[in-house]
């Protein structure tokens, strides 16, 4: 039955890839890649069960963390044009 779940996840990843290739704007592509990432986490987890090696879950957990940060980093890059942009100063934030 893990095979069925794996197949479903792979089909979803394929659909997301198609959207990433078609996507008219860059944001469509980021959305598709984001979905691809969440599916990758699931795929690693299910494959760990399929092959009887639950240690894969640690990899899935780390992948989930990295995927989120990479999405935010890419978005920040497209919005500001550089990753080193500092956030609004603290004094300013406290007033609001």
């Amino acid at each position: 039955m893990f095979v069925a779940a794996t197949t479903a996840i792979l089909i979803t990843m394929a659909l997301a890839l198609v959207r990433a290739l078609l996507g008219p704007t860059v944001y469509d592509r980021i959305l598709a890649v984001n979905m691809f990432n969440t599916k990758t986490v699931l795929l690693i987890a299910v494959l760990g069960f399929l092959s009887g090696r639950p240690n894969f879950l640690d990899i899935a957990l780390v992948y989930a963390l990295i995927a989120f940060i990479s999405t935010i980093a890419v978005l920040k890059f497209f919005e500001y044009g550089d990753l080193g942009q500092s956030r609004p100063s603290r004094a300013k934030r406290r007033q609001t």
Partner: peptide, 10 residues
């Protein structure tokens, strides 16, 4: 539901 989401994305 994963596949439904993929179809919706397309």
């Amino acid at each position: 539901f994963g596949i439904v989401g993929g179809i919706g994305l397309l």
